[in-house]
């Protein structure tokens, strides 16, 4: 399994080497003691193993308890993709105060559980979004904010923004509107909490199950695919 994936990655890299930044290309490096080694930064920096499915705990009581903890402690990745990200900062202000719902902002995908796709998503941003999404640890949830993520919104005929987010990553909660106000976002958080507590927010596993379909869709529009298939 892993060997096959490695081969695919290698073949692809040779094809698309032209997109790589110079510091990420394969190259020969002379070590201080004189031997020449080959360095392939893409292989060194990233793992190319396929993602795994993590089943929920089989004991319902424990899983419900853990789901309660996950629902009450939502850590949001601070990644604003479009104009909707201007609705995120007011959440921490006295007027809306999302902290009282256990919603906190984190700056690194490794520590966050919720990814808010805020508004339109251009192809260039989608590439970064996919990487950040895959770096988040397993129970992870996506909130799609605004009409642009549902059907393209007012950018439905743009050459550069996607129309439907659910073709590229699984979405837990949609918040419609252009733009939704922070109250709508809070309602979305509460809806997400209900889903998590009911054990219905297992979209991270869904992403892994339909991994090839999602990857094909992503690669259809990200034409300079210069990263490994799965990067974590």
């Amino acid at each position: 399994m892993t060997n096959e994936t490695n081969n695919i990655v290698e073949d692809k890299l040779e094809l698309e080497d032209k997109f790589l930044a110079p510091e990420n290309r394969k190259r020969q490096v002379t070590t201080p003691d004189g031997t020449i080694i080959e360095v392939d930064p893409l292989r060194d920096y990233f793992s190319d193993a396929r993602p795994q499915i993590y089943r929920p705990n089989s004991i319902p009581v424990i899983e419900n308890f853990l789901n309660w903890a996950r629902a009450e402690s939502l850590w949001v990745l601070g990644f604003g993709t479009g104009c909707g990200s201007i609705e995120l900062p007011p959440l921490t202000t006295p007027r809306f105060d999302a902290y009282r719902f256990g919603v906190q902002m984190r700056a690194t995908p490794r520590q966050s559980n919720v990814f808010i796709i805020s508004g339109y998503l251009s192809v260039k941003t989608l590439k970064r979004v996919v990487r950040s999404y895959e770096q988040m640890p397993n129970p992870k949830y996506v909130i799609a904010l605004g009409s642009c993520t549902i059907n393209g919104g007012m950018y439905y005929d743009s050459y550069n923004t996607i129309n439907r987010l659910d073709q590229y990553m699984p979405v837990d909660v949609y918040i419609a509107g252009c733009m939704p106000r922070p109250e709508a976002l809070l309602a979305g958080f509460n809806k997400l909490k209900e889903l998590i507590k009911a054990g219905k927010a297992e979209k991270a596993n869904e992403y892994v199950e339909n991994f090839d379909w999602y990857k094909a869709n992503q690669k259809k529009i990200i034409k300079d695919w210069n990263m490994p298939d799965y990067n974590w």
Partner: peptide, 29 residues
């Protein structure tokens, strides 16, 4: 600059049909 890996004709030229491109590419709902 902004479009990474763009292989069509430059998008701001008026002969480029942006609506058709979007419908072909981005899975319209």
């Amino acid at each position: 600059f902004i479009l990474e890996g763009w292989d069509e004709i430059p998008p701001m030229r008026r002969e480029f049909d942006t609506k058709k491109y979007s419908e072909d590419t981005y899975f319209p709902r």
